[in-house]
Simulated scan of single mutants.
Amino acid sequence: MRLLLSVAVGSLAVLLHTGCQRGVTVKTPTDPPTTGSVNGSSTPNPTSANTTSLPPSKAVAFDTTARPRWLEDRIQKHLAEPKQNPIVQVTRYRYKGEVVYYETLGCCDQFSNLYSAKGAIICHPEGGLTGRGDDQCPDFNKNKTGELLVWRDPR
């Protein structure tokens, strides 16, 4: 075991020594040009400002059509509470021939909720101490169809 460890440490030392001798320098687009211009016509001059900009985040398009009143009330309740991690979201599915709403909740052993179109809780497909929900709809993930994001906490 000591021999193997000794060989590994020796190999690492050789690798580091030869890698450091190469004198690699990295130039980024934010470095000022060394000669005042850049060779070639297709390359823009470097700038002293950061040229990396993230694209604006696209707002998620939620299905707001025909949201039941009870669901609007749930959404307002979530917005009145502190933001959860992971964020709360509601997705509409078809399950056993009916429209249902699946609500994920925040962290740590909380049950997810599966609601009927009228707002009655059908079951808790996930969460709890086991992470498998309340076992009242164990086939939900296998048989759900027509996924459509209805709402995600925007905060």
Score class of each variant (00 low, 15 high):
residue 3 L to M: 09
residue 4 L to G: 10
residue 4 L to V: 08
residue 7 V to L: 13
residue 7 V to G: 03
residue 8 A to P: 10
residue 9 V to R: 02
residue 10 G to A: 14
residue 10 G to N: 05
residue 11 S to P: 02
residue 12 L to F: 13
residue 15 L to V: 11
residue 17 H to P: 02
residue 19 G to M: 03
residue 19 G to E: 05
residue 19 G to F: 01
residue 20 C to F: 11
residue 22 R to D: 12
residue 22 R to K: 13
residue 23 G to P: 11
residue 23 G to V: 08
residue 24 V to F: 04
residue 24 V to A: 11
residue 24 V to S: 11
residue 25 T to W: 04
residue 25 T to P: 00
residue 25 T to L: 09
residue 27 K to N: 13
residue 27 K to Q: 12
residue 28 T to Q: 08
residue 29 P to S: 03
residue 29 P to N: 03
residue 31 D to V: 02
residue 33 P to R: 04
residue 34 T to S: 12
residue 34 T to W: 07
residue 34 T to M: 04
residue 36 G to R: 04
residue 38 V to F: 00
residue 40 G to C: 08
residue 42 S to G: 09
residue 42 S to K: 12
residue 43 T to M: 01
residue 43 T to D: 08
residue 43 T to H: 03
residue 43 T to K: 14
residue 44 P to S: 06
residue 45 N to E: 06
residue 46 P to R: 05
residue 47 T to W: 04
residue 47 T to P: 04
residue 48 S to D: 08
residue 49 A to L: 07
residue 50 N to T: 10
residue 50 N to Y: 00
residue 52 T to C: 06
residue 58 K to L: 11
residue 58 K to C: 02
residue 59 A to K: 11
residue 60 V to T: 15
residue 61 A to Q: 15
residue 63 D to K: 13
residue 64 T to S: 12
residue 65 T to N: 11
residue 66 A to P: 05
residue 69 R to H: 06
residue 69 R to Y: 07
residue 69 R to E: 14
residue 71 L to Y: 07
residue 71 L to S: 07
residue 72 E to H: 02
residue 74 R to H: 07
residue 76 Q to D: 15
residue 77 K to S: 15
residue 77 K to R: 13
residue 77 K to G: 10
residue 78 H to E: 15
residue 90 V to G: 09
residue 90 V to A: 13
residue 90 V to Q: 12
residue 91 T to W: 07
residue 92 R to E: 15
residue 92 R to I: 03
residue 93 Y to I: 06
residue 94 R to K: 08
residue 94 R to N: 12
residue 97 G to D: 14
residue 99 V to K: 00
residue 100 V to C: 10
residue 100 V to G: 12
residue 100 V to A: 09
residue 100 V to R: 00
residue 101 Y to N: 13
residue 101 Y to A: 11
residue 105 L to Q: 14
residue 105 L to D: 14
residue 108 C to V: 00
residue 108 C to R: 01
residue 109 D to L: 00
residue 110 Q to F: 01
residue 110 Q to Y: 01
residue 111 F to N: 08
residue 113 N to W: 11
residue 113 N to E: 15
residue 113 N to V: 14
residue 113 N to F: 11
residue 113 N to D: 15
residue 113 N to H: 10
residue 113 N to R: 03
residue 117 A to I: 04
residue 119 G to Q: 03
residue 121 I to M: 03
residue 121 I to N: 14
residue 125 P to T: 15
residue 125 P to N: 13
residue 125 P to W: 15
residue 125 P to Y: 14
residue 126 E to K: 09
residue 127 G to F: 05
residue 127 G to K: 01
residue 129 L to M: 01
residue 129 L to N: 03
residue 129 L to P: 07
residue 130 T to I: 01
residue 134 D to Q: 06
residue 135 D to I: 03
residue 135 D to F: 01
residue 135 D to M: 03
residue 138 P to N: 08
residue 139 D to M: 04
residue 140 F to S: 09
residue 143 N to G: 01
residue 146 G to Y: 01
residue 146 G to M: 01
residue 147 E to V: 04
residue 147 E to W: 01
residue 147 E to K: 13
residue 148 L to M: 05
residue 148 L to P: 00
residue 149 L to Q: 09
residue 149 L to H: 09
residue 151 W to V: 08
residue 153 D to T: 09
residue 153 D to R: 11
